[in-house]
Design a protein around this nucleic acid. Structure first.
Lengths: 194, 194
DNA sequence: CGACACATGTAACACGTTACATGATTTG
DNA sequence: CAAATCATGTAACGTGTTACATGTGTCG
């Protein structure tokens, strides 16, 4: 869909598409060129793009593609319909769930190390945001915001999960002595200035 | 890693693993059985699991696997090391970024429809949470929490993105009249009770 | 016996990632 | 000319998803 959107602005060739994509995201989402070509081939197979000047293309020079009418329809539909939130298995959630259900794993320390890593990431993103002169790169700022929001929600979830797990263990006081030690609580979230 | 964690509790066969996994997530993350078998084959190839009773397995009956020492090492490492936050391309972020950089797409209406969809999802999750008698299914509650946090952060990001885009358009007042109409603002986030 | 649930597996496909191969153009 | 850069592609691999095929036990 990204390639379609870029092509909707006019014919582009492979490398150009890679560069424009990365210009939007400011090297945060590097894109392998090879994938551009394979994706273009798939889009062509599905009739969403076509070679722009098939005739005057001789050898291995720039090979521009253009979007087709069908491609424009698909693109418009993509913008209209809300993005599906795939039921993707979140590795972090899985890990904490599994840790909590195991006797011989120290859930608190797992949560703690995850939170530490998340807070470090958050710091890094915040630094990136203040570092940037940020002239006109709207896309980069939007992306950074999204990363920050996402990490923040991870931290908040870790806090909530820890509380929930402790409560659960307290309510289900089995005879087995709890291995959950009192964790050092960290601040739940850094300040976030828009 | 999930299969390894389950096998660490004792030998299991394929279907059992599927059922135990889904018991953790309460049908929110359905797991195709086929994937269990292919994954088991890969784990066996990598020496992380092995057939439990290779000899007395005759035909097509239950075929339990057990975790190996190497598997336990890998599993312990997984719990120790913080989960990587992959630089995954978020479809929603991409869509809004691209919409914002296009002249002939109404960014505000795209954001609005995305927010509506997200809020609907949020409502659904909240309802699920209050519906459940929720006896001992800690995993299910943790999972629901994570979904709620994630959707909430999407809504918050959409709000921030909208503000940022408007500000950006205001600062870069080109001659082209802005197509961005004033959106109806929705409440930024529902209450969230732990 | 027939139907059904249990249980294991495989084939086909989609997609992302990495690494490599190759030709064409520019530049010192 | 040699080297670097531009530009296009392909091959191999990992993994997730779906659908299908097959055998086995149980139960009415």
């Amino acid at each position: 869909m990204t390639l379609l959107a870029l092509l909707d602005d006019g014919p582009r060739y492979g490398l150009q598409l890679k560069q424009e994509f990365e210009a939007h995201t400011g090297d945060m989402w590097p894109l392998n060129v090879g994938q551009v070509y394979t994706t273009l081939a798939r889009l062509e197979r599905d009739g969403l793009v076509a070679e722009s000047d098939p005739d005057d293309y001789t050898g291995e020079r720039q090979r521009p593609y253009r979007i087709t009418d069908e491609g424009r329809r698909v693109l418009a539909r993509w913008f209209d319909e809300p993005a599906s939130v795939p039921p993707s298995r979140d590795e972090l959630v899985l890990k904490i769930m599994l840790a909590a259900s195991r006797a011989d794993t120290n859930t608190a320390s797992v949560i703690q190390s995850e939170r530490r890593a998340a807070l470090t990431l958050l710091q890094e993103y915040t630094r990136l945001k203040s570092d940037r002169p940020a002239p006109g790169d709207l896309g980069w700022l939007l992306l950074l915001d999204s990363l920050i929001f996402r990490v923040e929600s991870r931290v908040r979830w870790l806090d909530a999960a820890e509380a929930r797990i402790q409560r659960h263990h307290a309510e289900h006081v089995a005879s087995t002595a709890s291995t959950t030690i009192e964790p050092e609580r960290l601040q739940s979230s850094e300040s976030f200035s828009t």
